[in-house]
Computed example of a mutant assay.
Amino acid sequence: MKNITLALCGVALLLGSCNQTAPVESTPTAAAPSAPAAPAAVPPATLSTPPVNDTATAPAPAVAPSKLKEAETLKLSFAFKPAPNPDDPEHPKTSAFLKVQGSQPQEIDLGKFASKPDIVDADKAKLAGFPSGMLLGFRSYQASSGTSSDLAVLNVGGRRLRIVQRRVEETASEPGVFETSREIPLPPNTIVAPAKK
């Protein structure tokens, strides 16, 4: 009987010692997750060098001079054509046109005049009081009334052509004043000059 009691006590002690050691061994394991994790090794170049954006830093390509469009020179001249005169069929009028020669030619109607106009050169223009710096000009004289019709073409800032006209009475003490009759826009990157005769 004593032997059985001693055996039971030994088993109880053995079990008690096993239960006491388990929590001691498991304590470090439970605390391990709460410990701060060591930072991962990062290459020094990654921390100090920012990413490069090639699109933002690449310079814009320069335009090659050969691709720039050269300025086009437009040649100006007058053209005169007979026009019917219902009021006096025996004395037809003359239709005047401004011809613009270039990649996009134009023929601009300037109106009808009593007689075929005479082209005014630089010397005549100065004597007759035509605008300075005009490109082209002419005068149409009507003998029956003693009235002249003057017309001049001016270049305004390289952007448009200005047509100016006036009437000159022989009996007037002073010639009339030129007034703008119309303006014609010019294409971009163009130069205008009188056509060579």
Results as ranks from 00 to 15, higher is better:
F113P: 06
N85I: 03
P117C: 04
A60R: 08
T171G: 15
T171W: 11
F178C: 00
K75R: 14
S48L: 06
V11Q: 07
L161K: 05
L47M: 09
L186I: 00
L127V: 12
L186R: 04
H91D: 03
E25M: 08
S26G: 12
A40I: 08
L6Y: 14
N189L: 12
A31W: 10
V120Y: 13
Y141E: 02
R160G: 00
K69E: 08
L110K: 09
P175D: 01
P82W: 09
A60C: 05
E25Y: 12
N189G: 07
E90W: 15
P86W: 04
N85Q: 03
Y141A: 05
K112G: 03
S66C: 10
A30M: 09
Q101E: 10
K116D: 01
V168H: 10
A71D: 01
V42S: 10
A22Y: 13
S48Y: 11
A40H: 13
V177H: 07
I184C: 02
K112P: 07
C9Q: 09
N155T: 00
P65T: 01
T5M: 09
S34K: 15
I119G: 12
T147D: 02
V52N: 13
S34E: 06
G176H: 10
T21Y: 14
A71F: 07
C9H: 15
Q165M: 14
S115D: 03
E107C: 05
S144D: 04
T171L: 13
P51T: 07
T94R: 14
A143S: 10
T46G: 03
T147K: 07
N19S: 12
I191N: 09
A79C: 03
A40M: 11
P194D: 00
E170N: 13
L127N: 11
H91S: 04
F178M: 02
A22V: 06
D123V: 13
L154H: 04
R182N: 10
T180S: 08
P36D: 00
S173H: 12
N19I: 07
P65D: 00
V24K: 14
V11C: 08
S140Y: 08
T190L: 06
L136A: 02
A38P: 15
L98S: 01
S48M: 11
R182L: 03
A114H: 12
T21A: 14
L74T: 03
L135D: 00
F80M: 05
P185Q: 00
Q142N: 13
K116G: 02
